[in-house]
Amino acid sequence: MQIFVKTLTGKTITLEVEPSDTIENVKAKIQDKEGIPPDQQRLIFAGKQLEDGRTLSDYNIQKESTLHLVLR
């Protein structure tokens, strides 16, 4: 499924993921596309910060959901 990741600069990254993918996994995909190390990434969905060990389905993230990427 496709999800979108919006950065603070207003750029939107499109990722191909599975509901069973972990947040860690998603961060690795963002690193592949954008070169941002996962340890600098914070992903936010519905106002919650997403934890590395959880999966997209844990957070009920469905196709075409938009996550927000904050760098630390």
Rank of each mutant, 00 (worst) to 15 (best):
residue 21 D to C: 03
residue 70 V to N: 04
residue 27 K to I: 03
residue 4 F to H: 12
residue 41 Q to V: 08
residue 41 Q to I: 04
residue 23 I to H: 02
residue 51 E to M: 10
residue 55 T to A: 08
residue 60 N to F: 13
residue 27 K to R: 10
residue 23 I to Y: 01
residue 72 R to M: 13
residue 40 Q to T: 07
residue 2 Q to I: 12
residue 48 K to F: 14
residue 19 P to T: 11
residue 5 V to E: 00
residue 54 R to C: 02
residue 33 K to P: 02
residue 9 T to Y: 11
residue 69 L to C: 02
residue 50 L to Q: 00
residue 51 E to A: 05
residue 16 E to S: 07
residue 43 L to D: 00
residue 34 E to S: 07
residue 48 K to P: 01
residue 53 G to M: 08
residue 11 K to D: 09
residue 64 E to Q: 05
residue 54 R to N: 12
residue 9 T to M: 15
residue 68 H to F: 04
residue 44 I to Y: 13
residue 3 I to Q: 00
residue 71 L to P: 11
residue 68 H to A: 04
residue 52 D to W: 04
residue 56 L to G: 00
residue 68 H to N: 07
residue 5 V to H: 00
residue 22 T to F: 10
residue 64 E to F: 11
residue 7 T to S: 07
residue 27 K to Y: 05
residue 48 K to A: 14
residue 69 L to S: 02
residue 13 I to W: 14
residue 67 L to H: 01
residue 29 K to N: 10
residue 9 T to C: 03
residue 8 L to S: 12
residue 49 Q to L: 04
residue 5 V to S: 01
residue 34 E to I: 05
residue 33 K to I: 06
residue 45 F to R: 05
residue 37 P to L: 09
residue 66 T to Y: 13
residue 62 Q to T: 11
residue 25 N to Y: 10
residue 37 P to M: 15
residue 16 E to A: 14
residue 5 V to N: 00
residue 42 R to F: 13
residue 20 S to R: 12
residue 6 K to N: 13
residue 21 D to H: 10
residue 1 M to S: 05
residue 64 E to V: 06
residue 11 K to E: 10
residue 31 Q to A: 08
residue 51 E to H: 11
residue 7 T to H: 09
residue 57 S to Q: 15
residue 8 L to T: 15
residue 35 G to Y: 04
residue 16 E to M: 13
residue 3 I to K: 00
residue 44 I to P: 00
residue 5 V to D: 00
residue 25 N to G: 05
residue 33 K to F: 06
residue 15 L to S: 00
residue 52 D to Q: 09
residue 57 S to G: 13
residue 33 K to Q: 12
residue 31 Q to E: 08
residue 72 R to G: 13
residue 9 T to K: 06
residue 71 L to I: 06
residue 25 N to L: 11
residue 70 V to Q: 04
residue 34 E to D: 11
residue 15 L to P: 00
residue 24 E to H: 14
residue 29 K to R: 13
residue 71 L to C: 03
residue 40 Q to I: 06
residue 11 K to R: 07
residue 37 P to N: 09
residue 37 P to E: 15
residue 24 E to P: 05
residue 36 I to Q: 03
residue 49 Q to D: 14
residue 72 R to F: 08
residue 13 I to V: 13
residue 13 I to A: 03
residue 66 T to D: 04
residue 7 T to D: 09
residue 37 P to G: 09
residue 61 I to V: 14
residue 55 T to W: 06
residue 2 Q to V: 10
residue 52 D to N: 09
residue 18 E to G: 13
residue 55 T to G: 04
residue 12 T to P: 06
residue 72 R to H: 06
residue 21 D to N: 08
residue 38 P to G: 15
residue 3 I to C: 02
residue 29 K to T: 05
residue 41 Q to F: 06
residue 46 A to T: 05
residue 37 P to T: 11
residue 14 T to R: 09
residue 5 V to K: 00
residue 24 E to C: 03
residue 11 K to M: 14
residue 5 V to P: 00
residue 51 E to N: 05
residue 46 A to L: 12
residue 5 V to M: 03
residue 17 V to F: 05
residue 49 Q to K: 06
residue 54 R to G: 13
residue 32 D to N: 12
residue 39 D to A: 10
residue 63 K to D: 09
residue 49 Q to E: 15
residue 38 P to F: 11
residue 4 F to D: 03
residue 35 G to F: 05
residue 53 G to R: 12
residue 72 R to V: 06
residue 3 I to R: 00
residue 65 S to L: 04
residue 58 D to R: 03
residue 1 M to H: 15
residue 63 K to M: 11
residue 27 K to V: 03
residue 55 T to F: 06
residue 7 T to C: 02
residue 25 N to H: 10
residue 10 G to F: 04
residue 1 M to K: 03
residue 33 K to V: 09
residue 37 P to H: 07
residue 17 V to R: 00
residue 7 T to K: 08
residue 22 T to H: 15
residue 71 L to H: 11
residue 60 N to T: 12
residue 5 V to R: 00
residue 13 I to C: 02
residue 26 V to F: 02
residue 17 V to N: 02
residue 8 L to I: 13
residue 51 E to Y: 10
residue 65 S to E: 08
residue 67 L to V: 09
residue 43 L to N: 00
residue 67 L to C: 01
residue 72 R to I: 10
residue 62 Q to A: 14
residue 69 L to Y: 02
residue 66 T to A: 07
residue 60 N to S: 06
residue 23 I to E: 01
residue 1 M to F: 14
residue 14 T to C: 02
residue 59 Y to W: 03
residue 38 P to D: 11
residue 22 T to L: 06
residue 45 F to G: 03
residue 60 N to Q: 06
residue 32 D to I: 08
residue 24 E to A: 13
residue 51 E to K: 05
residue 25 N to I: 15
residue 42 R to Q: 08
residue 63 K to Y: 07
residue 39 D to N: 14
residue 5 V to A: 05
residue 19 P to V: 14
residue 35 G to A: 12
residue 14 T to N: 06
residue 46 A to I: 12
residue 51 E to C: 02
residue 22 T to I: 10
residue 50 L to S: 01
residue 29 K to E: 09
residue 41 Q to L: 05
residue 43 L to K: 00
residue 37 P to C: 03
residue 9 T to G: 10
residue 46 A to C: 02
residue 48 K to W: 15
residue 70 V to F: 09
residue 18 E to K: 10
residue 38 P to N: 08
residue 15 L to T: 01
residue 35 G to T: 08
residue 24 E to F: 15
residue 35 G to P: 04
residue 70 V to I: 07
residue 38 P to C: 02
residue 52 D to L: 05
residue 36 I to W: 10
residue 70 V to D: 06
residue 57 S to P: 04
residue 55 T to R: 10
residue 14 T to P: 13
residue 13 I to P: 00
